[in-house]
Design a protein around this nucleic acid. Structure first.
Lengths: 220, 220
DNA sequence: TTCTTGTCACCTAGGTGTTAATAT
DNA sequence: ATATTAACACCTAGGTGACAAGAA
């Protein structure tokens, strides 16, 4: 069996309608897909694999008016259905079970010509991540026939692929929970209390100055 | 067979008398021990392992007077002889051969109580890294008996373990060749030429200002 | 309009030798 | 004297959303 890690965080996102950024170069998922494994044979080899299946046959757009996703059309032609093999594969059951397995090397792209082995997804479509535990039979010469699969689907990990966040609440939850987005957080909670005590004449309580000015044109 | 990568750099260090820092927390080697492998069975599993053997039974000190290492005494009692298994082990021969194998996760420590699995070495002693290719026989139940080893020793990788660099030329070669030490480089070569053209009134040609002032006491 | 792209400031994470202080 | 330690400035390497400009 297998348990999803950070399930509570996944559910917070899922309630708002999870969005995952796709870029040409490839973007990691956040939250990261992580699982805890149980009941494997400690001495046998397993491959751990992820893939992504369309949730439906629809293309979506985000209605800012109603703050919700609405159907825009039928699905675009679907891309080659790539898989992501966990880079530690193959490994013994004992190895997989002794710690949380993290798919933090997995990246999502919208580039149909991607040559980096990333997962190709259509933007503005909904996807369901799937997790496969594949038993590798060492005695079999023909690998294609002599394997046993077990597939896990955690419905709270479904998401809409986007090139830019649509729902502002998703953006805020990403900023609040992803360490790499700390630069976009307002000073908050504990920090705020301390600041309001120590820094008497702060210009704007609990909000940080950021430099977002950009040159209107770029040279070289 | 097996080839040492960056052999020229290793030899430059070896001619000066390579020193490797050991710290309580563990320090990587530089140059990193990297090899290219040939002639493995593509379909068989191998473990790649490193260990370190004392070059002799002596403790050294660096004579600044003569700029050379001199014998200080007999060797200190030797530590538990740990090994480092390459984290990708075990893997197929094809996997090992298709790219350079880098032991960049290997760290050296002088902490006899180390619990991080690092290689424990006595400071001021000389060591010879060794590299072992271990064939893993899948049919054997008793792992201890049914393995075949092949050991490689590249004499240009021998070094003296130190807690602080002794030979200033070693320090300079580390700074010049290790990307992570770029902060200690003087502006040089190409950069220098450009700077001397573009920056007319530079205070000190080809040398960078650095902030090395430190508080004489530390609070919290 | 709607969606995508490229660049950026701002982070996390961690590898360097330097230095002052400490230990032996 | 000699050797070790811990904190530090300064890097490499790379993951964030914001933003302006471009594309469809």
């Amino acid at each position: 069996t297998s348990d999803l890690e950070m399930r509570q965080l996944w559910r917070e996102f899922d309630e708002l309608g999870t969005e995952m950024i796709v870029t040409k170069a490839g973007r990691r998922m956040f939250p990261t897909f992580q699982v805890r494994l149980f009941g494997l044979d400690p001495m046998s080899d397993y491959m751990l694999v992820m893939d992504f299946i369309p949730c439906d046959d629809k293309r979506y757009r985000y209605s800012f008016h109603t703050s919700s996703w609405v159907v825009a059309s039928k699905a675009d032609p679907h891309m080659p259905g790539r898989i992501h093999v966990h880079p530690d594969s193959p490994a013994k059951g004992a190895q997989w079970m002794k710690q949380v397995v993290s798919f933090d090397k997995l990246k999502l792209t919208n580039n149909l010509m991607d040559e980096n082995g990333h997962i190709i997804l259509n933007s503005m479509h909904k996807f369901q991540p799937r997790f496969h535990v594949i038993y590798v039979n060492p005695k079999a010469e023909d690998v294609s026939q002599c394997q046993t699969y077990k597939t896990f689907v955690f419905i709270e990990t479904k998401f809409t692929a986007v090139t830019a966040y649509q729902n502002h609440r998703i953006t805020q939850l990403k900023i609040a929970s992803n360490p790499f987005a700390k630069g976009f957080r307002d000073a908050e909670a504990d920090d705020c209390v301390i600041e309001s005590i120590t820094n008497v004449n702060h210009p704007a309580i609990c909000s940080r100055q950021r430099n977002h000015t950009r040159p209107s044109s770029m040279q070289l």
